[in-house]
Amino acid sequence: MHVLDFEKPVKDLEKQIEKARELAESDFSGLQEKTVKDLEDTLDKLKKELYSHLTGWQKVQLSRHPDRPYAEDYINNISENFIELHGDRNIGDDKAMIGGFGSIDGQTVMFIGQQKGRNTKQRQYRNFGMANPEGYRKALRLMKLAEKFNKPIITLIDTPGASPGLEAEERGQGEAIARNLREMSLLKVPVVCIIIGEGASGGALGIGVGDKVLMMEYTWYSVISPESCSSILWRSWDYKEAAAEALQLTSDKMLQQGLIDGIIKEPLGGAHNDPAKTFKNIKAEIKKQLKDLLLMSPEERIIARVDKFSNMGVYAE
């Protein structure tokens, strides 16, 4: 279990409660039980206080929490019979981008998502969730497949960015993302995009053009990571907290700006504190969104989708 700095008081108190509980079992005076109860009240207050005043940077940290559910966890816990599909039919199979058909309570959907790894080996295998051009092309191939068979598309976004490297450039990272943006605009099937962790820049947007774009509560979505923003604009790595505030990259701020369509609540303390509840929330939300979207015709959806993105931007005229 990984504990973030600001999570420490909560975790310490939880440990204390656990100990008090053990004591209470062999104590018949009822005194210990009262202690447990008091501690639990304190914990509840502490958590509510802490998690209602998180800074942008703290939310960024939660979005990257190593115990947070990843794309595969969501897919496996909200759908049955997931069949993973591999490859872009050209270069290879990008392990940072996964996809395939699954069934949510009888509704077949195409899942596409960036996948991170849990340990060093897995992290390398998944390239830290940074897809190469073939990842974006695989995603597009699968989206076209969904369109062909008239199945809705769910994308799960969790990436620190598209892979920056020699091979990515040689194979046209820019072109791959650009093509997805254009093609996703006109997909005939419903597209629901959910930021489940990090939504960094074009790498996130490359699977992020949807009828509904939702953010999990403790995630971020912006044009650049706070660290890189700090390095470029402040010319120092030390201003990531300030950059996180300035970028207004959290779910509440993104909703205020009208750049996303909704927020999916997370359990108190974040998704990793109660994955089961998290899966339940996200599944309910997907079902609700699909139900609404399926009432619209493909043309209506496309017009609304293009209009939505066309209206994004603030300027003086």
Binding site: R182, L186, V223, L249, V306
Partner: peptide, 26 residues
């Protein structure tokens, strides 16, 4: 690239221009 001082608003210009190009393409 994108203008960082407009954060996600500038990111969304990528989607916006590409969507418009999809219509031009059609």
């Amino acid at each position: 690239g994108a203008r960082m001082m407009e954060a996600a608003l500038s990111l969304m210009q990528m989607a916006k221009t590409s969507a418009k190009l999809a219509l031009l393409d059609q």
